[in-house]
Nucleic acid binder design. Sequence first.
DNA 1: CGGTTTTGACCCGCGC
DNA 2: GCGCGGGTCAAAACCG
Length: 575
Amino acid sequence: MESCKLKKVLMEKNSSKKPALRNRDGEEKEMMKKSSSDDGQDDLMDIKEVPLLTMTGKPSAETDNNNFDSSSIQQNQEEDQIESTKVKVGEVREENERLKQLLAQMLKDYQSLRGRFFNTLQQADSKKSSTTNQEIEEPEIICLSLGRTSSTEMKKEEKKNMNGRKEDEKSKNEGLALGLECKFEPAATKNRSSESSFEEKAMEMLPPNKILKTESLSGDEAVLHQAQLKKTRVSVRARCDTPTLNDGCQWRKYGQKIAKGNPCPRAYYRCTVSPTCPVRKQVQRCVQDMSILVTTYEGTHDHPLPLSATAMASTTSAAASMLQSQSSTSQPGLGTSFSIPLATSSASNLHYPALNFSQNLRPYQYYVTNPSISTSNSHPTITLDLTAPANPSYFNKLSTATRYPPACLNFSSSSSSTLELNASQRNSTFGLMNLERQPTSQEQLYRPHTQMIINQTQSQQPLPETIAAATKAIAWNPNFRSALAAAITTVVANGGGMSAQGDSSGLNKKWGDSLPLSTQNGVVCGSSFLSQSSLANSPQQQQQERSLPLFPINSLSLAASKSASGSVDNGNHIK
DNA sequence: CGGTTTTGACCCGCGC
DNA sequence: GCGCGGGTCAAAACCG
């Protein structure tokens, strides 16, 4: 904080000029340590004491030992210092006011977005309750839901099932009482693994009391839902030189396999933020282009996500929600697929820009390019492609790369119904989720907390036509809009959450300990608002990126080092 | 020494 | 029933 710096300057002045005040300076430093994690207001309060000390703490002995002239000169100098200090304090005060205004604006925006989102949920709820048909065909309904009945219930389930991880995960599956309103296919009734849908993430971070409850579902329905949810996957294609994408989460590799049709090994990771987290991810190089890394997420985190991880979570959540909503309109048993070109990206050599929080705080953009969705197999998968611009030539490439026919935008079952976008929509940027607005200088400083932080390119600016096209496209697809609202809500909650916990030490706690997240009104918030404190304490954690950054300015650039956040094989297998 | 990675073995679903 | 392939397990190796 700037105020902290100012405080240091003031204290240095005091300590050098007035030895008698050193003890008090020590107290001030202690106070500064304590308040380092507090918000700027507290800092400002501390600063207010500084000039008082300067004025009142002047030792009289100094003037007694000097003649009148030197004493008056020194007095003038000190008065000048006092004046300058007052000016600085005034500036800090003004800055504080600006921050307060910014805070208020962010709160207002957050409340507004949250209100909209919950209205959407309530509408979905009312529509669902108004129909006894299990197959909800209303595409407006975005059925985001929790994967657990509650955290306490989950813990009870876990306690009841301590006989190994399998048992544990099974119990959690059984605890799934909330599901997405979609029916993928009859095969979904299989009681298989424990993964639930990734699109539940958005709801994870919502206030529990606001969560749309689906208790009306019968037990069979719940089982059916969870069986469906666990199969939903979100695949992210991005050019990445590093073994894995740094998505802000902690992953542990548990397996590697050579998949058929791809000489590159597929690495299997599981989330280690929480020991019981069922989330898996698969990482594999694209066979056509080794520079492209395909990361597939599956499951729902059963723990609060660090701010840095919510970006990816929100991205995949929104995308998966779109998949879910589209799947809900399709007939069970019929494979569905559609592909949507999203934001135009000129990125040529991305290093997973989606999570590259640039240090210079450029406008953060949320680009999701060229997603394709396929539910033709047992794992409904949406692919978010961050590797190429949404142009016709790209579609040809994607078509061969994904084996899904993305060349036409259709929400089609494999047998019949087809809904296509027109050419202009197809070639336009569809899902640009650009939360950018022209920032003030202060907003630039704190933008990571206020905006979705997916940056496609380091310097890319959204084209006006891109924004317009995205707006049109979002308007066209209310499902995606709703899903996006969830993502935005999440991000705003994270960024706008007024929690000033700022306990960076929590970052370094092992999983199972409390994460550096705070909850306010049930909303999981990224803590340390306005905090830029360093994050990792131990060198090992720094090196392995175990610390989950509260404030991702210096923490989310892609690490080329072998890290717990995901190294595949360091080139031994990945060429 | 504790946590992570590696890697062969194993399990399970699916198609034939 | 059998084989294939995807996914997971778990012991050993590795690393800080």
